[in-house]
Amino acid sequence: MGDELLTVPEVMARLRLGRSTVYDLIRSRRLASMLVGRARRIPLAAVQDFIAREMGGAA
């Protein structure tokens, strides 16, 4: 499903980053996220877009 929402720990595992780094990416708007109630969720598409942008910058 393209509209899957991930938790911060799930994003941490997928990107192999620490909690602080994931929140820094969210805070700097490099990684899109949303609040569902009090829970922070990151769309899978946002993670994929972030990876694509980072890969494009490294090439």
Rank of each mutant, 00 (worst) to 15 (best):
R29K: 14
S20K: 15
R41W: 01
L25E: 06
A45D: 10
R41M: 02
L44I: 03
L44G: 01
E10P: 02
R38K: 14
T21N: 12
L6H: 03
R40A: 05
L15D: 06
I42Y: 03
R16W: 04
R53C: 06
G37F: 01
R19M: 10
I51R: 14
V36N: 04
R40I: 12
D24Q: 13
T7F: 04
I51F: 05
V11Q: 02
M55A: 14
L15N: 08
A39N: 08
S20A: 15
E54G: 09
S28T: 13
L44E: 07
R14K: 14
L44Y: 02
I51T: 07
R19K: 15
G56Y: 01
L6D: 01
R27C: 09
A59C: 08
L44T: 03
R19S: 13
S33Y: 04
G56H: 07
L44H: 00
I26L: 10
A13N: 12
I26D: 06
G57N: 09
L17W: 03
R41T: 01
A59T: 07
I26T: 05
M1H: 08
M1Q: 05
T7P: 00
L25M: 12
P43W: 01
R30A: 12
T21F: 11
V22E: 07
E4L: 11
M1E: 11
A46N: 06
R16N: 15
L35F: 13
R53A: 14
P9I: 03
M1F: 07
E10K: 07
T21Y: 13
E10T: 03
G37S: 07
V8S: 06
G57Q: 07
I26R: 00
T21M: 11
L31G: 05
E10N: 01
L15F: 08
L15R: 09
A45H: 11
E54F: 01
S20W: 12
L35T: 11
M55Y: 07
